[in-house]
Write a protein that binds this DNA or RNA. Structure first.
Length: 480
RNA sequence: CGGGGCGUAGCGCAGCUUGGUUAGCGCGCUUGGUUCGGGACCAAGAGGUCGGAGGUUCAAAUCCUCUCGCCCCGACCA
């Protein structure tokens, strides 16, 4: 079947990826623009997706011993300024509250761009003894960063995220936490969102403002650009020193705590769109789809009543196990509905018409395959159960082979630039560790070091830019 | 924040160069009817003072100034 034949409303993914992305966001009813620049409204269909994503991740965060809390939106200027690198990193994008009603505030309040400062100041109050540690807290919150260029989900002025903030009694424990979260994120993003990621460490240039070091998960998008899917920071004692988080250890020695922070955001909704979406629109992994299957009844004058009855029967049977929607709207033809639900990315469609009634069957179509399959009534439940798992898996495998095909090694700078220009994706190349090389590579090709693999590479090679010998084989890419 | 493009009905657009009837078209929407297995058809309707403010003019969607927003390309960032 011609992929484009069914799509009237969205731009071509191949020819105009950016426009395609915006079209899918709007036409699949995920989000809309608002009167406030850079701020989108997440519409019910998009928000339901986010809620499912939240649940998947929240479960994992809690399973690893963390508890949720909620900290204030406003951060006093003096607090934000305590960690020098931190404030410098975020200063250009902080929104400030200067007035309460008509009255000018004594001290400006920052609308949180992230919560290390406010949480750090409270941890300093709460932590006295090594017995108080570790503190393992997560919060689901909104964040404001005054971005110059915005795009729905990928970069908005206000966005939703979760941010974990933990404090530990020593460096090893903090490092263990930072890496543990990296694994939690990897499982969530790969298993629930079906997005394969490459994990590693950020270079100094790219790490979080104020962190000792930053771990990251990087995902390949449909246009060859790279999306940072999540980060986990080992803050060392930087923030503990800035916010005075101290405790007495087992040996009655006063120590600064070791803290971490980590986050993932609504940006991942954008990731789902750009990894799985196709010419026909969205394609949702069953685990996070708010509608896992839609039933489209096929009406004819004479049989409408019976068909509707049967459709309702299927709905009540299936909704015990799945998230089911019955599209009984009278004003649209089946074909129209097929297209709409495909655009909205629903994993499975069931068609029920008089023919199916007569033969005790349904017609079923997978969003990831597209062909019609006849399933006998007896086997509907068990088949769909298999399908859900299979679709989830298939989306991941497809994305993974795309990822694998788009990781290229090169030791030639000319071909490096050529690949970045034409194919993009990830390039594996040796890097000497010098920031000057990193900067020049960025100027030449717009590529940045997405991550440095966790396991040290055995063989040595020559830095892609300066040619100096190095054992650091890193991933480059053009980032979102 | 620099360069470019665009704002006219819910969506997509025409009209603007060269100011001048009541601002058009397609889709969508409403009502009624016929339909319904891959974006149905017929008929009758509703809906806009042209992003906003100011200016020029007898007269502005059209010309000028400012401003806001969106998109693309850079710089910056999750």
């Amino acid at each position: 079947m011609d992929e484009t034949k069914f799509v009237k409303e969205i731009a071509s993914k191949e020819e105009a990826f950016s426009q395609w992305y915006i079209d899918v966001v709007k036409k699949a009813d995920l989000a809309d623009y608002t009167p406030v620049k850079g701020c989108m409204v997440i519409k019910p269909y998009g928000y339901a997706l986010w809620e499912n994503m939240q649940q998947c991740l929240d479960r994992r965060i809690k399973a690893t011993g963390h508890k949720n809390a909620y900290f204030p939106l406003f951060i006093p200027e003096s607090l934000l300024k305590k960690e020098a690198e931190h404030v410098e990193g975020f200063a250009p994008e902080v929104a400030w509250v200067t007035h309460g009603g008509n009255q000018k505030l004594e001290e400006r309040l920052a609308v949180r761009p992230t919560s290390e400062a406010i949480i750090g100041s409270l941890y300093s109050k709460w932590i006295r003894s090594w017995r108080d540690l570790p503190v393992l807290i997560n919060q689901w919150a909104n964040i404001v960063r005054w971005e110059k260029v915005t795009r729905p989900f990928l970069r908005t002025t206000e966005f939703l995220w979760q941010e974990g903030h933990t404090a530990h009694k020593n460096q090893e424990e903090a490092e263990e936490e930072t890496l543990k979260i990296l694994t939690v994120y990897k499982d969530y993003i790969e298993q629930d969102l079906a997005i394969p990621v490459i994990i590693g460490r950020k270079s100094n240039n790219e790490k979080f403002a104020g962190a000792m070091h930053t771990y990251t998960l990087e995902a390949l998008m449909g246009d060859g650009k790279i999306l940072q899917a999540g980060t986990s920071h080992n803050l060392g004692q930087n923030f503990a020193k800035a916010f005075d988080i101290r405790f007495l250890d087992e040996n009655q020695q006063e120590q600064f705590a070791w803290t971490t922070s980590w986050g993932t955001s609504t940006r991942l909704v954008g990731g789902i769109i750009m990894v799985h979406g196709d010419e026909r629109g969205l394609k949702l992994p069953p685990k996070v789809a708010s509608v896992q299957m839609v039933i489209v009844p096929i009406f004819f004058d004479t049989s409408k009543q019976e068909v509707m009855e049967k459709a309702r029967e299927y709905k009540s049977l299936l909704e015990k196990k799945f998230k089911v929607e019955l599209d009984d709207r009278d004003s649209y033809t089946p074909g129209w509905k097929f297209n709409e639900w495909e655009m909205k990315g629903v994993p499975v469609r069931l068609e029920i018409g008089p023919r199916d009634l007569a033969q005790n069957q349904v017609v079923a179509v997978r969003r990831d395959k597209g062909n019609k399959v006849i399933i006998s009534e007896k086997e509907v439940e068990s088949t769909l159960e298999k399908w859900m798992a299979d679709i989830q898996n298939n989306l991941f495998l497809q994305a993974r082979s795309r990822l694998e095909e788009n990781i290229r090694f090169t030791d030639n700078y000319e071909s490096f630039k050529e690949i970045m220009e034409e194919k993009r994706g990830f390039i594996k190349a040796f890097w000497c560790g010098n920031e000057k090389c990193e900067d020049q590579i960025k100027k030449d090709s717009k590529a940045t070091i997405r991550c440095i693999p966790l396991e040290e590479h055995k063989e040595k090679g020559k830095c892609i830019f300066c040619g100096e010998e190095s054992s650091s084989l890193v991933y480059f890419g053009r980032a979102y």
